[in-house]
Structures are given as C-alpha cells and as structure tokens.
Design a protein around this nucleic acid. Sequence first.
DNA 1: ACCCTGAGTAGGAAAGTTTCCGACCTACTC
DNA 2: GAGTAGGTCGGAAACTTTCCTACTCAGGGT
Lengths: 402, 402
Amino acid sequence: MGGDYLAGPQGLLRSINARAVLAVVDREGPLGRPEITRATGLSKTTVAQALRELIARDVVDEAGIDTARRGPAATLYRIAPRCAFGLGVDIGHLRVRVAVVDATGEVLARAEAPAPRRDAAALADTVTALASECAGRAGIGVAAVGQAVIGVPAIVGRDGRTIRRAYGLPRGGKGLVDAIARDLPMPLLLENDVNLAAVAEQRFGACADVGDFVLLGVGVGLGAGIVLGGRLHRGFAGGAGEVGFLPHPATELGTEVLGARRIAEQARAAGIAGRPSPRELFERARGGDEKALAVVDATARRIAHVAASIALVIEPELFVLGGAVGANADLLLGRVRHHLAKDAGPLPIRVIASGVPDDAVLRGAAWLARHHARERAFAAATGAPPQDAGPGGRPYDTDSAG
Amino acid sequence: MGGDYLAGPQGLLRSINARAVLAVVDREGPLGRPEITRATGLSKTTVAQALRELIARDVVDEAGIDTARRGPAATLYRIAPRCAFGLGVDIGHLRVRVAVVDATGEVLARAEAPAPRRDAAALADTVTALASECAGRAGIGVAAVGQAVIGVPAIVGRDGRTIRRAYGLPRGGKGLVDAIARDLPMPLLLENDVNLAAVAEQRFGACADVGDFVLLGVGVGLGAGIVLGGRLHRGFAGGAGEVGFLPHPATELGTEVLGARRIAEQARAAGIAGRPSPRELFERARGGDEKALAVVDATARRIAHVAASIALVIEPELFVLGGAVGANADLLLGRVRHHLAKDAGPLPIRVIASGVPDDAVLRGAAWLARHHARERAFAAATGAPPQDAGPGGRPYDTDSAG
DNA sequence: ACCCTGAGTAGGAAAGTTTCCGACCTACTC
DNA sequence: GAGTAGGTCGGAAACTTTCCTACTCAGGGT
C-alpha cells in the first residue's frame, strides 16, 4: 500500500535513541556515559537504559575505565569489536587477496594466492579456501562473518551479483558468485574494484571529508570510482565510471584511452625496444631516460584529458590518482596538473595522489563488508530504524529495490 | 559540539508523526482520517491529534466530505493551498518570465516581459515588477511569498547566489541578485536554467519515477541538468553539466561543441546562404531541404557524442532532449538514436523527448520555490524534524554548510 | 410503498502503557 | 570538602486500546 513514512509508537523513539547512542559511541571512540549524554542531548537515565539494552544485545562493550577526572572512575563504552565481522576479497588479474576484519575495522587476518586465470571453479575454490583460512586465523568460524564483499575487475550490476564485461576473469565471471556462494554461508556482494578503491580512499585516504570526488584508477585499464554526496555512484546498471572509453582526439571511438596496453603501444611509438612493463618504464623515467619520460608525459596527458572530461560532467571537488600506474604519483602528478592547467576548461581542477598506497581494493572491500555486517547487527539490536550516520548521508546502500 | 544525531524527548516523536501525516496527506491527495490511519500505521487518536495541530497551524485544510462509503460522512483533509507560496522566475536571453504558485503547485499568476540585455538594474526592476504584478493578480502580497527561485543562463554557486560565466546577462550577472533582493522580501535562490528544466522534467515530465537522468538542454548553448538519486547534482561549485565544452574530435578544446553559433557555422559550411535562425533551419528541414537536413544530422551527431560521453561517466537511466533546439524532437530524436547506436560504447543508451514542452525553466523554478516555501512552513508547523519524503530521498537541499 | 432494523463507519473520550526527564541520593577520588 | 559517576523514584508527555455515540445505507417485513 503506502510507502514507509517513519511514524510509529513510542518504541520507535527508543530505537532512534539507541541508534543515536550507538552512532556517538562509534564515532567518538570509547566514551564515558556523561560524554554520551552531552553528545546526544539525551538524559542520563535514557542513556543508561539504552546502554543496558545495547550491551545486552552484544553490540556495545565496556572498555576499561577513565580515571582522568577526579571523582569516581567512569566506565568507558565502545562498539563491541566482535559484534560483526566482514570479509573482503580482491580478485585481481594476478592474485586473489582476502582479509577478515572485525567491527572496528581492525584486520584480523589476511591471505593471498595466485589467481587461476582460466578456471572459474578453481578461482572460486581459491577464494573460499583463503576465506576459511583467514576466518580460522581470526579465531572465528566462517559462519560468524556477517557479510562478504568481493572486488572484481568488471562492471557489476546494481544487484551486486551480475557481472558484465569482465576481461580479467575466467568465463567472463559467469557463475563465479554462485560458485562462491555455494561454499560461503554469509551474504555476498560483488563490487567493481575501482569503486572499492574509492571507498578505501574515502575511509582511509585523503578524502575523509570530501563529499564529491573521483578516484582515477590507472592500471591494466582506466576506470573511475565516483563518490557523490559521500556515496558511491554506480550508475543505472553499474556502468558509471567506465571512462576508459571516453572519446579522445588521438584514439578511435570504442577503444580505450589508456591502460597497460596503450602504454606499451606508446613505448613502441617512442622508439623503446623490447617490451618493458609499465613498472619498468616508470623506473627508467625516474632514472632520467628521455624516451621513457616521453611515455610518462603522454600518459599524464591522457589522464588529464579524461579528468577534464569528467569534471565537465560532474565537477567533483577532487581527483585522486590511484591504481598500479597511478601510484607513480612522483612522476605523474605534476605532469597531470600541468596538462590540466594548460588546456583547462572553465573550472579549476584539483588532483592529488592516493592516500592508500597498498591493498586499496582489498581494504575497500573489507570496509564495505564490515559496514554492511555492522548495519545489520545494529538494526537487529536497535529495532531497525532506517537511520544511518555517515558523513554526508547514507553511504553505500546497494539498494536492490526488487 | 557534536553533530546532530536525531535523538530527543517524546516531543520528537510527535514531530515525526505530524510529519508523517503531512507527507501522506501531501502525496495521496485529499484523504479521510481512516485512510491516514492506515497509511501511517498510527492510531486513530494520534492521527486526530496530529491533524488538530496541523490545522491549527494552517498547513492542513478540511476539503469537503466523502460520502462514498456507508456510515457517517468522512471529513477529507488536504495540504492547505495557501500555507505557502512560491515565486518562479526565468531570466532567459530574450524574455523574463515570472509565475506565482500556491502550495499545491497551481499557477495563480504568470507574466512576462522582454529582458533588458545591457542594463542590470533594469533587468532587476523587470523581475521585481513582474513579481509584484503576479502576486497582486494572485491575490496576495509579495511578502506572503515564502521563497523565490530564479533561473539564469549561468553557472550558479552552491550558495544559490554567486553567478559565474553568465554570457547572456548584463555585467555577467554581477549584482543582479542583490538588486533583486533589495526589492523582494522573501528568500532568494538562483539556479542554473538547465537544472530547473531538469526539475520540471522530473516533476511534470517523463521522469517522475526515474532516479537518475540527464536533461540535455540544447539551445543557445549546450548544457546538461543532472539528476542523480532523485536529486539535482550541481557539482562542487555548481559547474556540473557544463558539457558544452566536452572534447569533440572536430572541435578545438575550450570551444563549445554545440549551440546556436555552431549550428549557424555548420549551415554556412553546408552551403546555406543567408543567416537562417536555427528555428528556420529546422523548418526547412521539415520541408525536405537537403542542406538543412544535413545540418540537423550534424547537430544530432554532436548531441549523440555528448550523450555518449556523459553516459560513460555517470550512466544515467535516461537522457531527455530539451531546450529550444532540442524541442525539435521529431527531427532530432531518431537521428540521435541512430548515431548513438552506431558508435555505441559499452552501454545501451535511452533517449526520449522532453515531456515539458512549454515554460520548462519557469515551471521548474516555480516548483522549486514552492518546495522550499512548503518545507519551511512544514518545518515550522511540526517542529522541524529533518525528514523529507520525496521519491528517492531528500530532494534539492541547497545545502550551504557554512 | 413505507418503515424498521442491523451492520458498518466516523469521530470522540477514558483508561492504560511506554518512554523520557528532572531531582535526589550514594559512593568515590582528588 | 568539592566535584563527578551512577542509580532510583516520581512526574510528565505521548501513543494505544477500548468503549461509546452518532450516522448512513441495505434489506426485509408490513
């Protein structure tokens, strides 16, 4: 019949207040009751009641005492680290990485292995084996994990299950989720790898307080992770950020502007013999090799070109350079800025280096998994009010409205 | 100190419930109490109490009785049409249009006049004079209007006051708002004209239930109104959607891809003598003129090019063709689709014609003004809970967090 | 053809329950 | 001794349930 209008009995108020207490404790770290009282504006009595309830439901913990002030020692409360666990997976072109984190985001275990490139079943087995291993090392059963998020180099549908255009996955990723889901009991969510890198940037990097930014993932291909209003923007069918195919004067339509293949091509064009990897090319450029530097500059120019196009459409506050190639910020950043300033459109554009040098995709996946697992635990503990206290609104609800 | 976590005393619950009742009444039109009770899930008593309060504060009205069922006649309730008024203004290149609407969105008065093109003061005077006239004809004082929204062909900052890159305004729009604000008592908000056309499309056109869409405004210039998650996306400094400057193979960087000037240029290139207006060109094309048709096709190709680029960045569900030139959907739509299908990127792209043929900018401005005026009235009447029941989340808060 | 009765609905009032808050009290530490 | 943490109790606010009255239509009896 009608939609939900958030109206209800007094119980709703209790839920809301419990949620508020939870949010304060989550954000401000271990906190004494008086501080929670001040931060929420609730009365002492109500805070005490809410905490009793939250502790009984195992989402809040006592974490020592605070003797800093005079008077009796204040009990400190925190989110119970073991109230929810998340499993992050990064299925890369070469390796599979897995991490298990607790509710605080602490990494309890991490493991990786080479990625089977041809055999979908073997890939799925690798994932589940690593997951079991990590769960074991974390001292929990796999069943205790509340959510898994799997990063893949592909376009992922809004349902978090469908894979499209997966170049680096066996059989185009067909059946991958189902195969993994058969062996892992918790809810599964797929996500584009660059999107997860953007999440990592937002949570651990330089974009903590930036509402709108774009992570340019320069690696095997070129992709953009777009965060608008503090939330990932995936597009209608998960295809947002496929900026590798943006038109470029020197490139045919329908081909990628930039990526490992393009860089190799430009290396040949610059007269570089052999087939040096991008990594080696950047190394040589660092050594002063003129030809390698020319390739670096061409790469920077194309990055700038793509950033300018994106800026004209959504004008983010900030661009972040990420990905395996983008990690060479020492060489790229200045040149990208130079080209942006040169043929600048109507708007000034800020570009910075990634603040998450290692494991960005994995860390983003783990963060997202933890987030969902926690939300579920919190909702169950407080009576499921749809409130959500992230900076800049509700983050990341992979809303499948169907 | 801390942020707001939406926690509070029982009074909060009353606010929330009043707000829910208001939202139901707003969405479902005139409604009897029993239906409100069902839709909100609240008890009869509470609904009665809320309605008493809302009526006392003049935001809700009795609107006749319902004798359809047997039993005693049920009183019907609705949003009081006179609880808030909005003033919409469209400052175009040639004419200024103004409309006054009531809380239901009904247009109470509309007026227009030629736009003074050189004199900023005269332009401001035109606006205020038309506003006074409309308010008079609507039977209210200008002071009764709760919000004005002014559409301008320019980039508008997030504060809704600053104007940048206003080609069609005297003195680049400098001082325009202040001059108008001196004579109009209500809060003023500027907005980009294409953005307002997008709002109109969302509210009156074909995009009522589409969360993510892009309105391509093809007129004197080319701009995009971007709606993501049901909300306008303005960009960091209001510059989102400046897609007229997207790179195009046949165009130099920093120049516009499309617009009246480009079309004239292409007409010359096609060997058309004289300087026919775009309108005339499309007329001739309709008559079968080969050269004019060539120009139309070239225009369509460029529109397709821009749409494809936008789709690669944000992948909206839908593109809508609007603006004075875009209104020639009979000629353009098929050709745009053709070109999109031809050099399609990885994603299928839907394009439709605008569903708001007339006064799109004005209607969008009026809608937005009404929206803000109403929100303010509702907040005052219910005790200002930050809830907001639009389809797909909170719409259009011009959040100036400063 | 007219009237009476029963069922279903709208609206209101009283009693009961849940929840929050303020005030008071105790215990603890500097 | 002063200031703080934590607990308890009575009061106020808000919602719900239950009961009650009044009204209208439908159907059957006279």
